[in-house]
């Protein structure tokens, strides 16, 4: 199914991910609950404000003996409902999204590198293996420092600001940042993940419809934060393969010369353990 003109408005954007429906359902259950509770309180409040207003012949009941037990039951009800939300909605969804990753062999694995104020999507190419990244090779034409000399890196595709994926296939995106904290946000996929420099954070998702959408940065990353918009295209399997092959072809046509790069001075390097 193709979404030609995704409809955006004053409520949730369309959802084209396999896991998003559950999130949307939780959001709607929550808002009905909030609405019921609020309307209940508001009706009670308005009733009190009118019925117990100061007026001649009306006096406050100061006995202090009035005891209400209903609020206690409402409170207990709220606690039980919150426990249900946690156990039956939030915990399962969170562990599905954060823990139950698809097998890498069945999925398309991409690397997404964020920097002030652009995205670079790195595909492994035909061999399915990512080339080595070297910080000293980073320059304007090689934003991630991909080593084209490395046999695994020869056929890698770098796609500036555009994430193209095939529909109905699990995608694993490994997120890294070169400079500050960014946030990888795909509104239509219900994907949002901070990208912490020094760590590689994986996310996974699977699209159910094709169409042209957007990547957003959802964490203030500097003066060009707003501009950090990328393109997110969900293609049919055939479309995607055509695009992939054309990229490979143009890569071979360009040159066998390694991409130019001026070495950067790098201080003694320590690394943070990847956090899981």
């Amino acid at each position: 199914m193709r979404m030609e003109h995704p409809h955006y408005g004053f409520w949730l954007p369309p959802n084209i991910s396999t896991h998003g429906a559950e999130i949307d359902k939780l959001i709607s259950v929550l808002h009905w609950f909030m609405l019921v509770l609020f309307v209940g309180w508001a009706l009670y409040l308005v009733y009190c404000l009118i019925r117990f207003r100061e007026r001649p012949g009306h006096e406050a009941d100061i006995s202090g003996s009035t005891h209400f037990s209903l609020p206690k039951y409402i409170e207990i009800g709220i606690i039980i409902f919150e426990a249900v939300l946690l156990v039956f909605f939030s915990f399962p969804i969170w562990s599905k999204v954060k823990r139950d990753f698809p097998n890498e062999a069945d999925a398309l694995v991409v690397r997404v590198t964020a920097e002030q104020f652009a995205w670079t999507v790195h595909y492994a190419g035909k061999d399915g293996k990512f080339g080595q990244l070297k910080i000293e090779l980073i320059d304007g034409t090689n934003p991630v420092g991909l080593d084209r000399q490395d046999p695994n890196g020869k056929d890698d595709i770098l796609s500036p600001n555009t994430l193209n994926i095939p529909v109905n296939k699990p995608i694993i995106a490994k997120l890294t940042s070169k400079d500050v904290i960014h946030n990888f946000f795909l509104p239509v996929m219900r994907v949002k993940q901070d990208i912490i420099p020094g760590m590689t954070v994986p996310v996974w998702f699977q699209a159910t419809q094709t169409g042209k959408f957007e990547i957003g940065c959802a964490q203030l990353c500097g003066v060009g934060h707003t501009q950090m918009r990328g393109f997110f295209n969900v293609m049919s399997q055939e479309e995607f393969e055509t695009w992939y092959q054309e990229e490979e072809k143009s890569l071979l046509a360009s040159s066998d010369e390694p991409l130019p790069g001026k070495p950067l001075e790098v201080a003694k390097i320590q690394t943070i353990k990847e956090s899981k």
Binding site: Q116, G198, L264, A267, I269, Q270, I272
Partner: peptide
């Protein structure tokens, strides 16, 4: 500041090893 930061095309000259979180 973790190691290996590249800000506006320049490697940051710091020791690294820190943690933004």
């Amino acid at each position: 500041l973790p190691s290996g930061l590249v800000v506006s095309g320049e490697a940051l000259k710091v020791s690294g090893g820190g943690n933004p979180i």
